[in-house]
Design a binder for these strands. Sequence first.
DNA 1: CTTATTCCCTGATTGC
DNA 2: TGCAATCAGGGAATAA
Length: 303
Amino acid sequence: MPELPEVETIRRDLLPLLRGRAFTHVWVSPDAPRLVQAPSPADFARLLPGRRIGDVSRRGKFLVFHLSGGLYLLVHLRMTGALLHRPSGAPPDRYVRAVLALDDGSELRFSDLRKFGALWLLPDPSPVLGRLGPEPLDGGLTPSLLRELTARRRAPIKSVLLDQRALAGLGNIYADEALFAAGLHPQRPASSLSVSEVERLHEAIGRVLTAALDDRGASFSDYVDASGREGRHQFRVQVFRRTGEPCYVCGREIARVKVAGRSSHFCPRCQPEGRGEGGLRQVGGLPRARRDALVTKPNEVSQ
DNA sequence: CTTATTCCCTGATTGC
DNA sequence: TGCAATCAGGGAATAA
């Protein structure tokens, strides 16, 4: 599931490859009727060729291509999308729903098994991006902003972290990891968090996302970068998809509950239900010796 | 305004 | 072993 660290990894890889390039032609699979959200697929294929790429930026989980003539190409990978940059004549990829050919012979292939991904070509991206909350990694999400957000919502804190209008870029992996790092139970009502708990959560979000970015993202099922390579952070998560395995900090079995329709993984001892103890947890795995002592069976990509 | 639920989609996993 | 049911989840739509 591409979340902020995965999308940012793709952005950083693509920028030097694509800056200055122009699109030459476009193909969109008739089998993916929801892929192009705006304008019509016909106008999309007509308006894109000839446009030159300036900047490539990111907002939340959206990739934003700044094009000549004042247009913006927005890309959202949703669940299983990948944006592959392939050289001329590269072998075919699976599940390719659109191909955007470039003037150096290379092409961008939008691959997407589950067809949830989406593209937009717009003169003004704000109708799509305007409702997103602040960015957690560029100083946009301050502790006081997070406190205001949580104070007026009684929904579980996990739901608030997943709400892109509250803050932009977290998905199921990093919401679970941030709550563990902050020592907070995912079902705690957001408004029940104390000021120091909110500060811990703010700190945890930044640390978790930065650690994942250092690892070029997490590949649990389908995520690959623009070259088709997997990230490494799936080997360093503390709770996500570790149900039944021992907590690296205390040894308790990681539990799973449904929150906001999503699986939520947590340590019942490190993330107690009520207010109280809990503290900032380590991010990115334990030292090798201690981890080996706790893990009973090899902990590869579990589940 | 809020929160909870359903739906989209298809390959992998689970259950009988 | 085989086949059907269930699961996974980002976000839009819908319900309450």
